[in-house]
Structure formats: C-alpha cells, structure tokens
Computed example of a mutant assay.
Amino acid sequence: MTRPPTAAQRRLIEAADPVTGRLTGTDAQLAALMKRGLAFRHPRPPHDHFLTPAGHRVREAEPEPDVPETRAAAPAASASGVFAARVGGEDPSPAAGPARLREVRGAWQGLLELRRMTNPDGATDRPCGWERGHLVQAAALALEAAGHRPAGPDGGGGYRVRETPQPEAVAVYAPDDAELRACAAALEGAGWQAGEYTEPRTRTRYVLASPRRV
C-alpha cells in the first residue's frame, strides 16, 4: 500500500482550492504528490496541478480538532474557512450577508474553471466529474449562485436539495410552485436537466435534476 502523505504534503492538500482542488507548491512538492497518486498535472496550459479523487479523499478524511461541536448547525464554512454549499435546513445566520455572497460567487467561478479544465472539450456550460461525485453540493451551489435562498432549520422559506435513490439525480423542494419552477430554470441554466414531479403518496411537488452530459 502507498505510504500516507507526510505532514508537509497534508498541508499542501488542505490548502488546495476547496472547489477545484487546484494545488500550489514547488515543483518537487507537486511531483511527490503525483508520485503518490494524490495529484495530477493538467495537460493543457497553464498545466496546473489538481487533486486526484484519492487526494480529495485524504483531505475529506483529515480530522479537524479545532472545529466546534456546533459546526453542523453552520456548515456554510468550517473553522478552516473551507466553503460549503448550503443544501437547505441549516441555520442561515452565520452565513448571511455580503461575505457569503462573495464566497458563493468565488466558489461558482472556481467551479466554472474546474469545468473548463476537466471537461474533455473545455466546456463550461455543463457539469464536470466533480459535480457528478458531489451531486447535492453541486446543485445547491448552482441554486445559491443563481440567487436562490436555502430553507432554514424549520424547512421553510427556500429550497432544499436532497439525495435520491436514482443514480446521478437529486431532488429539489421549494415552498411553492413558482419557486420550484424558478429552481428548475436555474439548474437548467447551470447545465443540469430538470423536470417537475409529484410524490405519489404526499402529493408534494419537487424537481428531479441530473447533470447534463452533452
């Protein structure tokens, strides 16, 4: 088995861009991460280095002892400042205001750059592999970047993005039909396929969305 990364390499991994996984470091440091299968060099200029799926797993599994127990109530940003999309149901107060808007805009621009760098044709108008591996977070980011407000802790007042049993699909709920249609339009504008459905038992309306491939 491959040896675990050194403390210095973990610091590089933790410092990677939270959305794109872009790495910064010396040539020797980046080459060492590539040798371990934790990074790859993009074939197109400017030939930046990015975390591989294994590198992302190392970062996601890294313990965060300085994060307080109340973090689950405010997932918009961890103690380390890593951006997190709001899927609905969180306490919005710690993430409200102009600072959150700047974070969302920056994360969305980073995601578009990741699409450009990782989609085979460089397209930015459809989701990339990272989004297909993080469906709920990716859909929530697209909605928040389009100006939609996530639901609060009581479940009302905005969108909620949830996993579904279907592969590569999420369910989006909203407080009324007008907001539901607006969420569907926002996702379609972000490169997703979206359709409106009704749950048979509860008659609850929702949007089923999946990343567009072509």
Results as ranks from 00 to 15, higher is better:
G110H: 07
S80D: 13
M34N: 13
M1Q: 13
R126P: 04
Q193D: 15
T70D: 15
D91T: 08
R100S: 04
R203V: 09
W108A: 00
E90F: 07
P200V: 05
E90R: 14
V161K: 11
E64L: 13
A31Q: 12
K35M: 09
E69Y: 15
Y197F: 15
M34H: 15
H148K: 02
E62C: 07
G21S: 02
E60G: 04
C128A: 13
L111V: 05
V172C: 03
R11T: 12
T202L: 13
G88K: 01
K35R: 14
L135G: 04
A142K: 01
L208E: 12
W192R: 02
Q137Y: 13
M117F: 10
V207Y: 12
A15L: 04
R201S: 09
D177T: 03
C128S: 09
T6E: 15
G88T: 02
A15M: 03
L112H: 01
A54H: 11
P200S: 12
G191K: 01
P153H: 09
A76F: 15
M34R: 15
A16T: 07
K35P: 03
Q137K: 12
G156S: 14
A96Y: 00
A16F: 11
W130S: 06
A8F: 02
R181D: 15
R100M: 08
R201M: 10
R205V: 07
F40H: 13
R162D: 13
T26R: 14
L135E: 03
Q29N: 12
A186M: 03
R22L: 01
T202M: 06
E90G: 11
E168G: 04
P46K: 09
L114Q: 11
G89A: 06
L143C: 07
R149C: 08
V161L: 10
R36W: 11
R86S: 06
A151L: 05
G110N: 07
Q9K: 10
S78W: 10
E131T: 06
E144I: 03
Q166L: 09
R22H: 04
P4G: 06
S78Y: 06
R11P: 07
E179N: 00
G122P: 08
A142S: 05
R115W: 06
L187Y: 13
A182V: 00
Y173S: 10
V136I: 10
G189V: 04
F40W: 14
R100G: 09
P63Y: 10
P98Y: 00
L208G: 02
Q166H: 15
G191M: 03
A190M: 09
